[in-house]
Design a binder for these strands. Sequence first.
DNA 1: GCCGTTTTCGGCCCGACTGTTTTCAGTCG
Length: 576
Amino acid sequence: MPIHNEDIAAAFDEFADLLALSGENQFRIRAYRHAAEVLRSLSEPLSRRIAGGFDPDTLPGVGADLAGKIRELATTGRCAALERLRATVPPGLRELLFLPDVGPQRARALHEALDIRSLEDLRVAIEQHRVRKVPRFGVKLENRLAESLATLAQRGKRFHWSVADRYARALERHLASLPGVLQVAIAGSYRRGRETVGDLDVVVAAQPGTDVDSALRQYEETKATLVSGPTRSSVVLRNGLQVDLRVVPAASFGAALYYFTGSKDHNIRLRTQAAALGLKINEYGVFRGSECIGGSTEGSVLATLGLPYIEPELREDRGEFEAAVAGRLPRLIAGVDLRGDLHAHTSATDGTATLAGMARAARAAQLRYLAITDHSRYLGAVHGLDAAALAAQIGQIDAFNASARGITLLKGVEVDILEDGSLALPDEILGRLDLVVGAVHSHFTLSRRRQTERLLRALDHGYLSILAHPSARLIDQREPIDCDWPTVFRAAAERPCFLEINAQPSRLDLNDLMAREAASAGVRFCIASDAHGVGDFELLAGGVRQARRAWLEASQVINTQPLAQLRRTLRRTFLK
DNA sequence: GCCGTTTTCGGCCCGACTGTTTTCAGTCG
């Protein structure tokens, strides 16, 4: 049973919860939580790195003690200290922390006053109205807890970025139309471009006395109010998405936007660095004593620390401060850098539009070239193309290009990578194409060794140009395939093979961490829509967001190249 | 438990809202 980084991170989170329930020093608790976050940000399995001699003590936030626990967990899957700690806390007590309004202090109070040891105990105690009698509890809190218990299933749900986006834009328009509102921005993980969004963090600059709180609570999509105040409110929308609002004066907008964009770890680093310079940063500005020396814009906040602007997608405490100090922040790719799209389907397979229709839509989306990459026959779920049907499509594309204006179609295919790593179409037909996009659509659960061999063989094929949605994960639906990614990345980097960042909202594959690791191995990428209809080219923006989170620059993405250069880039190792 | 351009010891980001209280602890972001 392999030990994943997530397993170790989860053990540290449990450590933190149990220490909190034991009344431990909060900074000791934070050390465990911080280390858990650091472990989650690693893409390569620690257990293997440790087997290769890597010392976890060199990870940020990991000292001798936690390094020892990491080693123990990575090699044995267990941690003696954690097991000892478990024995001192009732096993069900931790689940109380999953409830809103219940932290370690209240969980302990409930345990000590009423001997509550689980959510079920709590439910019974609430029914008997015993909770309201616990010191510093009361009727209102008891009612809130009853409500939370009833809706516990809702908690922790995250939304695809694209779903959150629809609600974000509508809410932004609603608030911006309010008299007295000067600026509105959606911050948080939405602004950092995370693939899923837990809630919408809204920052509003308004003239004094503007009642933004009421405007939010009376918004047509608002279902319930959680918190209400003149500068801070929280509501839940009808679809379950929580909205947290912050209202500040115009002079504080940049500081508030910075604060609410996060991430939390990034902000803690920022404020710690400010403190070292004798400055204090909060959501109202940067202060030296009582004097405000920055805060109207995000740039003014960073400038007080002598730092250049840090793009929101980088603010995860993954080295962006060190890069900023060293003047090595990347010039992140932008949507306008994309000149074409290298993965799209038509009604010849599972798309909804004709070849000409897709071309028109791509041109309208300002693309200069579009690769038509319908499925090969192997994929059972759709009517894939066999060699003859693909040959017919090649003829259609040649005819289209002969008469088209403003866009060039590239001849391609999305060919299945079979279980053994061979491709599902013969070389004769693949050799007539401008590019071959290979993808895994089956046998997702092969062992790491066999899955790795499969991808390496596909990369070695000679005609394969692009490995599409490499991990094959579907967000919240299907785990990524198990594979020795560093080896695959090295192989791709050594060949004229490129890895896709697939922009479909449920894929976004490669993800940010994997793409960043691949880039450091020398891999180059394409950002592709995998369009199945004429409206899908706008999805490319999501692929660009993911690429930005991976610190990618335009030069690392081949479909930023003009067509002639792209054709040279795609030249194969095997001549046609 | 971690960490060092004040520090190997003594710090560790900062503020709003709620409920239970009559001044503040707890939670959350």
